Computed example of a mutant assay.
Amino acid sequence: MKNNLTKMMALDIYVSNLEEEKYSEITTELQPSSKKSVNLISWGIQDLFFEKELFNDLDTIKTFSKNFNWKDNVSTVIKENYYESLVLTDAEKKIIWVSNGFTKMTGYEKEFALNKTPRFLQGKETKETTKKRIQKKLQLGKPFKDVIINYRKDQSTYKCELHIIPLHNSSNSKITHFLALEKEAV
């Protein structure tokens, strides 16, 4: 089961980085099989907790959006994607806000993360190739997904799936911020 989840996550990351033309070519092969079904017993309970955090996070992000005059519809992205933590950085990648989920996921208090770059979450098991790949994707200025090995405050490692969205100013379309939707990968 764990191996299948890893394969699905890898496929998700691969597909999310495809150009539109290539995605169109393989879209019919991506249809789910109706041969198997999975019963999710506790989904509703998890949804209740997620929804409460979602509303708090949405309110905060809407305030940022208004203050920074973003043209991007961040609310839709947040509503349509499951995450455990949100991290908002400025264009120089300094953290200006993190959600409550950030503390739950990393063990670091919000105040500790402010004005730092997310590099403080990295360590010796964080691959240099992954860091370079993420940096290159950030420079392209397009949304993307990737997975990186991060470190919690207690120095335990975890695989962090990132969904990073560049945020643009409405008046000049310049990237002013990056929003990372994060969750622990299986």
Results as ranks from 00 to 15, higher is better:
residue 16 S to R: 09
residue 20 E to K: 10
residue 13 I to W: 01
residue 12 D to A: 09
residue 27 T to H: 08
residue 9 M to Y: 03
residue 26 I to T: 03
residue 36 K to F: 05
residue 33 S to T: 07
residue 45 I to T: 15
residue 11 L to E: 14
residue 35 K to L: 07
residue 40 L to K: 14
residue 29 E to H: 09
residue 8 M to A: 12
residue 27 T to K: 15
residue 8 M to G: 08
residue 25 E to W: 06
residue 30 L to S: 03
residue 15 V to Y: 01
residue 44 G to E: 13
residue 24 S to V: 00
residue 42 S to G: 14
residue 45 I to V: 14
residue 16 S to L: 01
residue 26 I to H: 04
residue 21 E to F: 04
residue 37 S to F: 05
residue 42 S to H: 13
residue 15 V to G: 02
residue 41 I to C: 09
residue 36 K to M: 06
residue 41 I to F: 12
residue 31 Q to C: 04
residue 20 E to Y: 03
residue 42 S to Y: 13
residue 15 V to E: 03
residue 10 A to G: 02
residue 42 S to M: 13
residue 25 E to Y: 08
residue 16 S to T: 08
residue 31 Q to E: 11
residue 37 S to L: 07
residue 44 G to K: 14
residue 40 L to H: 10
residue 25 E to I: 08
residue 43 W to N: 08
residue 11 L to S: 13
residue 22 K to I: 14
residue 37 S to M: 08
residue 25 E to S: 10
residue 40 L to G: 07
residue 27 T to P: 00
residue 41 I to H: 11
residue 19 E to W: 01
residue 28 T to S: 15
residue 23 Y to H: 08
residue 23 Y to S: 04
residue 37 S to T: 11
residue 25 E to L: 11
residue 33 S to K: 01
residue 16 S to D: 14
residue 33 S to W: 00
residue 10 A to W: 01
residue 21 E to R: 06
residue 38 V to R: 12
residue 8 M to C: 07
residue 33 S to D: 06
residue 43 W to H: 10
residue 8 M to S: 13
residue 10 A to R: 06
residue 42 S to K: 12
residue 18 L to I: 07
residue 30 L to A: 03
residue 33 S to L: 04
residue 29 E to T: 10
residue 23 Y to E: 04
residue 12 D to N: 12
residue 34 S to W: 00
residue 34 S to Q: 10
residue 26 I to D: 02
residue 22 K to G: 00
residue 33 S to Y: 02
residue 30 L to D: 05
residue 39 N to H: 12
residue 14 Y to K: 05
residue 39 N to P: 00
residue 26 I to N: 03
residue 29 E to F: 08
residue 32 P to Q: 03
residue 30 L to M: 03
residue 36 K to D: 06
residue 36 K to W: 04
residue 10 A to N: 08
residue 28 T to H: 15
residue 21 E to K: 09
residue 19 E to S: 05
residue 27 T to V: 14
residue 22 K to M: 11
residue 32 P to M: 05
residue 46 Q to S: 12
residue 9 M to A: 09
residue 19 E to P: 00
residue 44 G to C: 04
residue 35 K to R: 09
residue 26 I to W: 02
residue 38 V to A: 10
residue 31 Q to Y: 01
residue 37 S to D: 05
residue 21 E to N: 09
residue 12 D to F: 02
residue 13 I to A: 05
residue 31 Q to V: 11
